[in-house]
């Protein structure tokens, strides 16, 4: 028993050490966001603000609030569709072997490595042709397509852990391809979905380049564009910028906290036993 307690203490010590390291930059972020403009900058970065100023937050919130809703309209469908399609892709690529499935997977992987910057021109032309340029709908489509390689990859490797016998057993029981996905694989996919949703939500939420190129009307732009636009081209009010970053990160953080709970349960274990 004493040994177990000692182990726990070591775990706590290690966790705390890592935590301090992780929080160092966050401290700078927080301290700066509460400063009046004339205390902002490198020389005074470690100092806590002499008096808490909410100017930064007020200014940032005022400019960001209009774009918050756009981001939700963008992120929620884009995340769920790309996660769902990625999960089915992953299932097909890992459990149903067909001719060319390896080649297909290789192509998808290469797609992941195409830099954002080099697809800007073709992307714009494509969106114009299908009449979605300038709309959030167009942006959703872009993110679904661009997100597929990663969601597919994560699910494929996640399902690789799942014993193939499980699926085969279902097939013997007479379940079709999709039925065995729904009945066997989908219920145990939750940790996989958590990882994929965290990834997609964060990336689409924080993505700037596509957003700013596809939508030019400020009333249609997602929050990241407004966040970057808090900075002037010459003078940057870092207190406003960092307050804005904290406000912008809050929804993502809530998603983490909500989804993180699922990590704390051994979901797969239960279903395998059953």
């Amino acid at each position: 028993m004493a040994k177990k307690k000692g182990k726990k203490i070591i775990v706590y010590i290690l966790l705390t050490v890592f935590l301090v390291g992780f929080l160092l930059p966050i401290y700078v972020l927080l301290a700066t966001s509460f400063k009046p403009f004339d205390e902002v900058g490198k020389p005074l970065m470690w100092n806590w603000p002499s008096s808490l100023s909410f100017d930064g937050f007020a200014k940032a919130f005022d400019k960001l609030k209009g774009n918050l809703i756009n981001s939700f309209i963008l992120v929620i469908p884009a995340t769920f569709v790309s996660a769902m399609v990625g999960s089915i892709n992953g299932y097909v690529l890992s459990k149903l072997k067909f001719r060319g499935s390896n080649a297909l997977f290789a192509i998808i992987l290469f797609g992941m490595f195409i830099p954002y910057q080099s697809i800007l021109f073709p992307m714009i032309t494509f969106l114009q042709n299908i009449g979605l340029y300038g709309s959030i709908g167009g942006l959703i489509l872009v993110h679904i397509i661009y997100g597929l390689p990663i969601t597919t990859l994560i699910f494929r490797n996640y399902y690789a852990e799942v014993p193939t016998e499980l699926i085969e057993a279902a097939n013997i029981d007479g379940a079709g391809i999709f039925k065995s996905y729904w009945k066997v694989l989908f219920p145990i996919s939750l940790p996989g979905f958590v990882v994929v949703i965290i990834w997609q939500f964060t990336n689409i939420w924080n993505e700037f380049l596509f957003a700013v190129t596809v939508t030019s009307d400020p009333t249609k732009q997602p929050i990241t564009v407004a966040l970057v636009n808090l900075a002037g081209s010459q003078v940057v009010e870092w207190n406003v910028q960092m307050a804005g970053a904290i406000i912008t990160a809050l929804p993502t953080l809530l998603v983490y906290i909500f989804l993180g709970k699922y990590f704390l349960r051994g979901l797969l274990a239960g279903s395998v036993k059953g």
Binding site: L19, I26, L29, T224, A245, A249, Y256
Partner: peptide, 23 residues
């Protein structure tokens, strides 16, 4: 702890880049 470790990912690179450049 888990949420704290994930937190940096939620922040936009533009801003974390600046914080690190100051640090």
């Amino acid at each position: 702890f888990q949420n704290f470790f994930l937190f940096p990912m939620a922040l936009a690179f533009v801003v974390t880049g600046t914080v690190w450049s100051w640090i």
